[in-house]
């Protein structure tokens, strides 16, 4: 708050009203609703519900399909995060270094940010098409008979590739702006202190990028968990069957398609707890970082 803030009463209330009412109706109400439903079993025909305590949660833990999704989600998230972060860092370091064409490269490497995830998914469908997908044919040269949507591993592989492609621009932009905000004097000091370029990178540049990288880590985990929905849905063509799926996709499939409201709500609550834990972790790390500097 500003020290010389206005002291009129009604105006701020009026200003806050739209935001608060939207949030109450479309955030707190559904969130509370999800928590509540997770303790009930809904009648499939909409005739009432019964309180079942933690049963929805325990049956989640017993469901091998759910556990399989959880396992896939973890691996998927790790792969997407690690790959897109490291590739983006490589590209950002190069883009920061070159003098000629820097702007053009920057544009080329970031515009995919604006491509909608399902379109990225469609691109995946084309690349890995059964009859003539360019990447499928390419892998065929090495004797890998790529079968998108049929083979579990192949499908997961395609999902990772597309998700990394789609996320690369965000990471690239953040890394590049992180690199560009390193003061020139620091770079020059490093240039005098260390002959080797890679030494300079790991001793000076990388530590200075660490806050950006940490922030991106969280962003990427969130992305892999939630924002890949459109990619996954198009890659499996809306037919989950035996295909790999993330936890968020399962909430949708079980709840919206399968009409298992209680189970799906319990899944939502598990995800909420996961995200909250992630945020708490993030805050604590940020706090620690502030203490150091």
């Amino acid at each position: 708050m500003k020290r010389a803030g206005f002291s009129i009463r009604w105006l701020p209330i009026l200003l806050l009203l739209p935001q608060l009412s939207i949030i109450l109706i479309f955030f707190y109400w559904p969130a509370a609703h999800a928590v509540r439903s997770s303790f009930f079993l809904q009648d499939p025909f909409g005739f009432g519900e019964t309180f079942v305590g933690l049963k929805n949660y325990t049956s989640l833990l017993k469901s091998s399909a759910y556990l399989r999704s959880a396992q896939f989600t973890v691996i998927f998230t790790l792969m997407v995060t690690a790959l897109s972060l490291s590739l983006a860092l490589l590209l950002a370091v190069k883009a920061d270094k070159v003098i000629k064409g820097a702007k053009t490269y920057r544009t080329f490497l970031m515009w995919v940010y604006a491509v909608a995830p399902p379109v990225a998914g469609v691109i995946g469908l084309v690349l890995f098409d059964q009859s003539w997908g360019p990447l499928k044919e390419f892998f065929g040269l090495f004797g890998w008979d790529f079968r998108l949507g049929v083979d579990y591993f192949d499908t997961a592989f395609a999902m990772v590739v597309i998700s990394v492609w789609k996320q690369l621009p965000v990471n690239f932009i953040f890394f590049l702006s992180g690199l560009q905000s390193i003061p020139k004097s620091v770079r020059e000091a490093a240039l005098i202190d260390n002959r080797s370029a890679s030494g300079r990178f790991w001793d000076v540049t990388f530590p200075l990028l660490a806050p950006t990288a940490f922030f991106l880590l969280i962003i990427n985990i969130t992305y892999a968990l939630f924002d890949t929905f459109g990619i996954i849905d198009t890659v499996v063509k809306g037919e989950p069957s035996n295909n790999p799926m993330t936890l968020v996709y399962r909430v949708y499939v079980d709840g919206f398609r399968g009409n298992d409201l209680g189970g799906s709500s319990a899944q939502s609550v598990v995800l909420m707890v996961l995200v909250l834990a992630l945020t708490v972790f993030q805050f604590r790390m940020v706090e620690r970082r502030i203490h150091y500097t």
């Binding site: 708050m1 500003k2 803030g5 206005f6 002291s7 009129i8 105006l11 701020p12 806050l16 935001q19 608060l20 949030i23 955030f27 109400w29 559904p30 969130a31 609703h33 999800a34 439903s37 969130t222 939630f226 929905f229 968020v248 909430v251 949708y252 709840g255 919206f256 409201l261 799906s264 709500s265 939502s268 995800l271 909420m272 995200v275 909250l276 945020t279």
Partner: peptide
């Protein structure tokens, strides 16, 4: 910009929403 008694409360009510993306509460 205003001296609001419940500014902190409003702040928390609003900013808690940053924690949970729409996807996790999609069905409700």
């Amino acid at each position: 910009y205003f001296r609001l008694k419940f500014a902190t409360l409003a702040f928390w009510i609003i900013f808690t929403t940053l924690l949970l993306p729409l996807e996790v509460r999609i069905l409700p």
